[in-house]
Computed example of a mutant assay.
Amino acid sequence: MNFTDSPYSPGEVVYVIYRNPHTQDVANIQEAAVVQDPSHPGQLALFLYETYYPLSDEFAIYQSEEEAEQAYAYYFGSME
């Protein structure tokens, strides 16, 4: 996703629901940063767990931790 098509800006902090790739039944809310993709100039990426992920519609991205918690509760049940 390039800068002009994105509702996000480089440096913005967002929240994503991240599934553990090794244990698919484990999901957590994780803070991520929107950054310029170092591999694709002019594109945005999520920086999460020391890895760059191309910013795309495949991610459920939330502006606040509260929004992410509400979505988590809706899809997975209580966080506790």
Score class of each variant (00 low, 15 high):
Met1Val: 14
Met1Asp: 07
Met1Leu: 15
Met1Tyr: 12
Asn2Lys: 13
Asn2Ile: 12
Asn2Tyr: 15
Asn2Ala: 01
Phe3Cys: 08
Phe3Trp: 09
Thr4Asp: 12
Thr4Arg: 14
Thr4Tyr: 14
Asp5Phe: 02
Ser6Val: 12
Pro7Trp: 06
Pro7Tyr: 08
Pro7Lys: 15
Tyr8Met: 00
Ser9Met: 08
Ser9Lys: 15
Pro10Val: 13
Pro10Leu: 08
Glu12Phe: 01
Val13Phe: 07
Val13Pro: 01
Val13Glu: 15
Val14Ser: 00
Val14Asn: 05
Tyr15Asn: 08
Tyr15Pro: 03
Val16His: 04
Ile17Gly: 06
Ile17Asp: 10
Ile17Pro: 13
Tyr18Leu: 04
Tyr18Pro: 00
Tyr18His: 14
Arg19Tyr: 06
Asn20Glu: 13
Asn20Val: 02
Asn20Asp: 15
Asn20Gln: 04
His22Tyr: 09
His22Gly: 14
His22Ala: 10
His22Trp: 11
His22Pro: 00
Thr23Val: 15
Thr23Asn: 15
Thr23Ala: 11
Thr23Tyr: 14
Thr23Ile: 15
Gln24Thr: 11
Gln24Cys: 01
Asp25Lys: 06
Asp25Glu: 12
Asp25Thr: 12
Asp25Phe: 04
Val26His: 04
Val26Tyr: 04
Ala27Ser: 11
Ala27Cys: 15
Ala27Val: 13
Asn28Gln: 06
Asn28His: 12
Asn28Ala: 09
Ile29Lys: 09
Glu31His: 01
Ala32Cys: 04
Ala33Asp: 07
Val34Phe: 05
Val35Gly: 03
Val35Thr: 14
Val35His: 02
Gln36Pro: 00
Gln36His: 02
Asp37Phe: 05
Pro38Met: 10
Ser39Tyr: 13
Ser39Leu: 12
Ser39His: 12
Ser39Glu: 14
His40Ser: 10
His40Leu: 05
Pro41Gly: 11
Pro41Tyr: 03
Gly42Ala: 09
Leu44His: 13
Leu44Asn: 13
Ala45Glu: 04
Ala45Thr: 08
Leu46Val: 09
Leu46Cys: 09
Phe47Pro: 01
Leu48Pro: 12
Leu48Gln: 07
Leu48Cys: 05
Tyr49Gln: 06
Tyr49Met: 00
Tyr49Cys: 02
Glu50Gln: 09
Thr51Asp: 11
Thr51Trp: 10
Thr51Phe: 01
Thr51Tyr: 08
Tyr53Glu: 07
Tyr53Arg: 06
Tyr53Cys: 01
Tyr53His: 14
Leu55Gly: 03
Ser56Ala: 08
Ser56Val: 03
Ser56His: 00
Asp57Lys: 05
Asp57Asn: 08
Asp57Phe: 01
Glu58Thr: 14
Ala60Arg: 11
Ala60Ile: 02
Ala60Thr: 08
Ile61Trp: 06
Ile61Ser: 09
Ile61Cys: 09
Ile61Lys: 07
Tyr62Pro: 11
Gln63His: 06
Ser64Tyr: 07
Glu65Gly: 00
Glu65Gln: 12
Glu65Met: 03
Glu66Cys: 02
Ala68Leu: 04
Ala68Trp: 10
Ala68Tyr: 11
Ala68Glu: 04
Glu69Met: 12
Gln70Lys: 10
Ala71Val: 03
Tyr72Pro: 00
Ala73Pro: 02
Ala73Gly: 11
Tyr74Met: 06
Tyr74Phe: 04
Tyr75His: 10
Tyr75Pro: 00
Phe76Cys: 05
Gly77Phe: 01
Gly77Trp: 01
Ser78Trp: 10
Ser78Leu: 09
Met79Ser: 07
Met79Tyr: 07
Met79Phe: 02
Glu80Asp: 09
Glu80His: 03
